[in-house]
Nucleic acid binder design. Structure first.
Length: 202
DNA sequence: GTCGAGATTATCT
DNA sequence: GATAATCTCGACC
């Protein structure tokens, strides 16, 4: 059973604890190999940076709940809410290895050409697990989606998130955490600034 | 293997 | 109306 008090620490402390942890939903289970910490109001990339909204309210709530959000019109990403109630902070589940229910995961992820691709990426991980917006806010201790912390990872790599400049000038925090050598980890290619609205007349 | 660009919609200003 | 914590596909090496 997940010890909720462990998740009351900041995202930077919780993130490495989640490496190697198991996320289970139904018959599919994933072992996390890559996560990313979001420091809420301190993190310009966080949904909570600009204050509380109906969407990110879960992040301000009790730790140990699932924060899901819809992005780019077609993708769902999942986070583990941490820090005490009232503090917006969460850890994004970026990638993992499917360790149970591989058959079902393959069904959901038809585009994957190898098992390593089933949960390699935040949105893919949600698809493999079958996580949808409806799972947002559920309790990871005792709910449809469970989190089970494994043994502490012997070692983990860290790095600054690409595409996010230091807020106050060079305050580069290691926001990304991953297990070195895992084939399911793929630090995506360097971020490409998304185009603006497509020019109508070219 | 790497690189560039389009898709598509909930949410916020 | 603009934005976005991404993925997939196509071109090229």
């Amino acid at each position: 059973m997940l010890d909720r008090s462990v998740l009351e620490a900041s995202a930077l402390e919780v993130a490495p604890l989640l490496l190697g942890a198991i996320v289970r939903r139904g018959e599919v289970a994933v072992r996390l190999t890559e996560v990313e910490a979001y420091l809420g109001e301190r993190d310009p990339g966080s949904h909570a940076f600009r204050g509380r909204t109906p969407r990110n309210a879960v992040m301000y709530g009790e730790p140990g709940h699932l924060y899901t959000y819809f992005t780019y019109g077609m993708h769902v990403c999942a986070n583990v809410v941490c820090s005490p109630e009232g503090v917006a902070s969460a850890v994004l589940l970026r990638a993992g290895e499917v360790v149970e229910g591989v058959g079902l995961a393959r069904e959901r992820r038809r585009t994957s050409r190898s098992d390593d691709d089933l949960a390699r990426g935040p949105a893919r991980l949600c698809v493999a697990l079958g996580i949808t917006l409806a799972d947002g806010g559920t309790d990871l201790v005792d709910g449809p989606v469970r989190l089970e912390l494994g043994p502490l990872a012997r070692e983990h790599a860290t790095g600054p998130r690409t595409g996010l400049a230091g807020p106050g000038g060079g305050e580069d925090f290691p926001w990304r955490f991953w297990l070195p050598g895992e084939p399911t980890v793929s630090p995506y290619r360097a971020h490409t600034p998304r185009r603006r609205t497509p020019p109508p007349g070219a």
